[in-house]
């Protein structure tokens, strides 16, 4: 494992911890899109099917369990927790996220590295992860005022994606046969979706202002 991959995994882990911390300690999910969180839960559930069949490393298994556990508990908090769910703004979080799922299923059936159940599910999870942030970005655009923790959560997610790209570049030059077009292209699309957010995030940071997206 190279430094970019490790740093990517850690920023991903921190992003989830920041979100759980926000929800658990201040008992609020204001500004968080349930739609995006449901999509992430589906992403991890379909990607980590191999947790029972393939052993890669203890690190790998632990991280998979953490991502599965945290994504489903975040969804549980927003939907079921009696205090947290009151802060969920259903009226603003209106992105039709179900419509993202079907195209990803079709695309995974058509474009995959191998036509097996596990491989198609893995590919589906990559396509879905690429677009899963969209409901969250739309919600941000609507609410405009973003609290610090929500801003940091999205920043860390974007940082994780960017570090994974550096990891792929590194692996491409250091490992033989390391060519994964599907992973790379969907990862690149996903990272590009953060470009706009990053621009405003750095702008507010540089000027020491509160993060605010333009209308």
């Amino acid at each position: 494992m190279n430094i970019f991959r490790l740093a990517g995994d850690m920023t991903h882990l921190f992003s989830v911890l920041v979100l759980l911390l926000k929800i658990h300690t201040i008992k609020s999910c204001a500004g968080i899109s349930l739609k995006t969180q449901e999509l992430y839960a589906l992403v991890f559930a379909t990607r980590y099917l191999d947790i029972f069949t393939d052993y890669i490393s203890l690190y790998n298994t632990c991280m998979k369990l953490i991502f599965l556990g945290s994504s489903f508990s975040i969804v549980w908090y927003i939907r079921r927790h009696k205090i947290v769910r009151r802060s969920y703004d259903k009226e603003q979080d209106t992105f039709r996220h179900h419509f993202l799922i079907l195209p990803c299923i079709i695309l995974a059936l058509l474009i995959n590295e191998k036509f097996t159940v596990k491989e198609v599910m893995w590919t589906f999870s990559l396509y879905l992860e690429a677009v899963a942030i969209l409901p969250q970005l739309v919600l941000l655009q609507r609410t405009r005022n973003i609290d610090n923790l929500t801003g940091q959560y999205i920043f860390l997610l974007g940082a994780y994606r960017s570090l994974y790209i550096l990891n792929w570049i590194y692996r491409y030059f250091t490992e033989q046969h390391y060519v994964h077009w599907i992973t790379w292209i969907s990862g690149l699309v996903q990272t590009l979706l953060y470009a706009d957010f990053f621009y405003y995030y750095f702008h507010s940071w540089k000027n020491n202002e509160k993060l605010q997206l333009p209308a």
């Binding site: 191999d50 393939d54 890669i56 991280m63 991502f67 191998k114 893995w122 033989q176 390391y178 992973t183």
Partner: peptide, 10 residues
């Protein structure tokens, strides 16, 4: 040689 189905990344 790494097989295609070896998904060692998260």
């Amino acid at each position: 040689e790494a097989k295609d189905e070896d998904h060692d990344e998260l």
